[in-house]
Computed example of a mutant assay.
Amino acid sequence: MMATTHAAVGLVLALPLLVLAPDLAAVGALASLAGGVFPDLDLLAGQHRKTLHFPDYYWLGAVPALVAAAVAPSATTVAVAWFLLSAAVHSVSDAFGAGTEPRPWERTSAEAVYLHSRRRWIAPRYWVRYDGAPEDYLLTVLLLAPGLTHFGPTVGRVTLVLLTVGGAYTLVRKRLPDLEERLLK
């Protein structure tokens, strides 16, 4: 899935805050959006879906952080909890998409996301054929919709940026491996 789709899933995770702690909902939404994108920064930092993806270990921080946010709700506790929750869900959900190969529509990789506790890769499930697939962008649009109307203007602006970036990426996704090969020659 695209980073924008993971951010969108994070936004959906923040929806209960609109009822449970409306004054902290925007903070939780922004933290969830950031947590949804964070694991994909390993594209820049090392091996993708291994360096910052922790489908097992993020939960060790997310669960106590959620308890802390429930016991002592504040901007800080909510932000930390929803950031970690969104990063954890991102890391797990990568197993439901494609592998790590440059052309995931060819299905040549058996590596979707690295499970650090078992020191092995989880195989891709291809529920979303590949990052940037049309259905991936549709999922992004549907899941980001509440961000346009429910969390205030800052979240609304971030949502518009994510929709634009996700749409642009979807339009060029299948051309990127060829472009990368040309640039690296």
Rank of each mutant, 00 (worst) to 15 (best):
S93F: 14
A25G: 09
V9N: 02
T76P: 00
H90V: 10
T100L: 11
Y57L: 15
R175K: 15
L44T: 08
P146F: 10
H6K: 12
Y169L: 15
W127H: 11
L163C: 01
L43W: 10
G132W: 05
P153K: 07
T100K: 04
S32C: 03
P55V: 14
V12L: 09
D94A: 09
T76W: 14
V19Q: 13
G36V: 10
D40R: 11
L41K: 04
Y126P: 01
L13T: 14
R103W: 06
Y58K: 10
S109F: 01
V63W: 01
V63Q: 02
T5W: 02
L138H: 01
M2Y: 07
A25W: 06
A3P: 05
A21E: 13
Y114R: 12
W105L: 08
V67M: 01
K185H: 13
V113I: 12
H150R: 15
F38Q: 05
V89E: 07
S93Y: 07
P146T: 11
V165H: 00
A145K: 04
T164G: 08
V27D: 11
H150A: 15
G156N: 05
A72L: 12
A98K: 04
L142P: 01
R125L: 14
A133D: 12
S109T: 02
H116D: 07
A95W: 10
L160D: 00
V27A: 15
P153G: 04
V19C: 00
V37K: 01
A72T: 12
G167H: 11
A7V: 03
E106K: 15
W127F: 15
R107K: 15
R103P: 02
G10S: 08
R125W: 12
R175Y: 07
A14R: 05
Y130H: 14
G167D: 07
S32G: 12
A31V: 09
V161H: 00
P146N: 12
A168E: 00
L85P: 01
L160F: 02
P146R: 13
A79V: 09
S117N: 11
E135A: 05
P153T: 15
D42A: 08
Y169I: 08
A62F: 03
F83P: 02
L43D: 10
Y126N: 03
L44A: 14
T4G: 11
A123L: 00
T51K: 14
A25R: 06
L183E: 07
V19S: 08
W127A: 11
A95D: 02
L179F: 13
R107M: 13
E101C: 06
A14Q: 09
G36M: 04
R175C: 02
G61M: 05
H150L: 15
A110C: 00
W82I: 02
S117I: 14
A29C: 12
A7P: 03
L143N: 08
T159D: 08
G152D: 09
A123G: 01
P39Y: 12
H90R: 06
D94M: 06
A62L: 08
A123T: 13
L183P: 00
G35T: 05
A34N: 04
G97E: 02
P102F: 10
L43Q: 08
A25P: 10
G28H: 07
L66G: 01
V172N: 03
W82P: 02
G35M: 09
D94L: 10
G36Q: 06
M1P: 12
A87R: 11
H150I: 00
P39S: 11
T76N: 00
T5N: 11
D94C: 09
T100E: 07
V165Y: 02
